[in-house]
Amino acid sequence: MAAPKKSVTKEAGQEKGNGSPPEFTREQELRALRDMLLIRRFEEKAGQLYGMGAIGGFCHLYIGQEAVVVGMQMTLKKGDQVITGYRDHGHMLACGMDPKGVMAELTGRRGGYSKGKGGSMHMFSVAEHFYGGHGIVGAQVSLGTGLAFANRYRENDFVSLAYFGDGAANQGQVYESFNMAELWKLPVVYIIENNRYAMGTSVTRSSAQTDFSKRGLSFNIPGQQVDGMDVRAVKAAGDEAVAWCRAGKGPYILEMQTYRYRGHSMSDPAKYRTREEVEKVRHDQDPIEQVRNRLLAGGVSEQDLKSIDGEVRDIINGAADFAQHDPEPDPSELYTDVYR
């Protein structure tokens, strides 16, 4: 018998309209601020290093979307797994991976998480339960479902978070995974980071159903649309979804409505949207500014916030410094790690 279902899609849209999400404690606000700042400053630095030629290939920045991973990470316990695509720097930092190791992977040095062999799009940390870092659009969705399969198989109560984009949401294997996940009640939260564009293609030009929370409807998977620019809303929806999965009720879909400020990758001229559109989101909805303003209104001093900013900048400068001075991999590494 199927477990009783919360038929969420429709009501969730309305839920969202009804007032703001539950307040954060001051500790939560401060943690969210620090974690989001860490990602923002890291990405700004990565952009700079790319321009200098220290980072090569593709480099996809997460600036603007920070509230999504930071809010979701607040719902997890140690042992829950995370997997995503190539826009992965933010996810790794949120999982607690060392900015030095991430930045050194971007510059292709031996101290990087993949010893310099993977680069920006392919990084992993078994210790932090971060399973990548995948370059092929949509592949992580089946893989993330497989992580959940392993949890179910071992009868533990860990949950897998599979992040993917609005563009990836059109790949066939996503729906093959949805079907099996619900059929076998696998504990996976599908997090669709709807940043409105897949490269230069807007959601409305690629998707027949643009309400991504409904994408699991025909498989009976519940879904919610979430304001992905408000870290509290992310956390609240994430709590529900993770609890649903942990209770053995099967998968859950969260559509995070968010926005990327930068081009798709460093080589995207971004002619498919106006500067005004970007400026408006930045000005009205910036996830970091929202928290900062609430903290200031709540009596935290400008000075305190400055010192958080300073601490984060030091970490990032240290990471950039390490990543530029760490040596390249030893040539003997060319033939290692093909088999074990």
Binding site: G56, P331, L334, V338
Partner: peptide, 16 residues
């Protein structure tokens, strides 16, 4: 090409 997946690091890529 050498018998390995393509590495990212500049020096290894050149060798591959």
């Amino acid at each position: 090409g050498k018998d390995v997946p393509m590495p990212y690091a500049a020096n290894l890529e050149k060798m591959a």
